[in-house]
């Protein structure tokens, strides 16, 4: 099987995997970063969202062969100790119910706020519409993104 050199959370990893293996499963099963979650495998739910050069991307749609050379950040690399403003806001508002979708929600929100630090309510709702939360913690997610935007601005 081919080898790939990946840069994840500022660390280099060499992995052996079939070319078409989604980065999601390389992260989870081979590198042991299980914070990035599997929800649908077809880019519909957002649970597998990571950052690629600062942009939110669905790691279930990114093949490991494409990921070489990219600067990848996962939830585990978003901050040293959960101190990123979005993580802080998630704690302040106590957003999670089951918590399974939340790393994807946080990665989507943090990339969005990076590009749009002072979003309107509508912009927040549109930005987060791609991430499904089956427990429907949507009111808390919306509020936490608002609180996070005030924390960092």
């Amino acid at each position: 099987m081919p080898k790939f050199n990946l840069k994840i959370n500022n660390k280099n990893h060499t992995v052996e995997a079939a070319m078409d293996t989604p980065l999601l499963w390389v992260l989870r099963d081979q590198i042991g970063l299980v914070g990035t979650k599997y929800g649908c495998g077809i880019g519909q739910c957002g649970a597998c969202t990571i950052h690629v050069d600062g942009n939110a991307m669905r790691s279930c749609l990114l093949q490991v062969s494409q990921a070489e050379g990219m600067n990848i950040t996962t939830i585990e690399g978003l901050s040293e100790d959960g101190s990123h403003p979005v993580q802080q806001a998630w704690k302040d508002i106590d957003v999670p119910q089951c918590g399974y979708c939340q790393s994807g929600q946080i990665m989507t929100a943090s990339a969005f706020l990076e590009r749009n630090p002072n979003p309107t309510k509508t912009e927040i709702r549109n930005a987060m519409n791609g991430n499904i939360c089956r427990c429907a913690s949507y009111n808390s997610i919306e509020k936490a993104v608002e609180v996070a935007s005030k924390k960092s601005s």
Binding site: R28, Q87, D94, P96, G99, Q102
Partner: peptide, 23 residues
């Protein structure tokens, strides 16, 4: 009293918590 989820720190930092994460 308002008490936040006991697993919240682990959830927001992506620690292994769920069955799918068990290894």
């Amino acid at each position: 009293q308002n008490t936040s989820n006991v697993d919240i720190d682990a959830i927001v930092t992506g620690k292994p918590l769920f069955g799918l994460d068990y290894k």
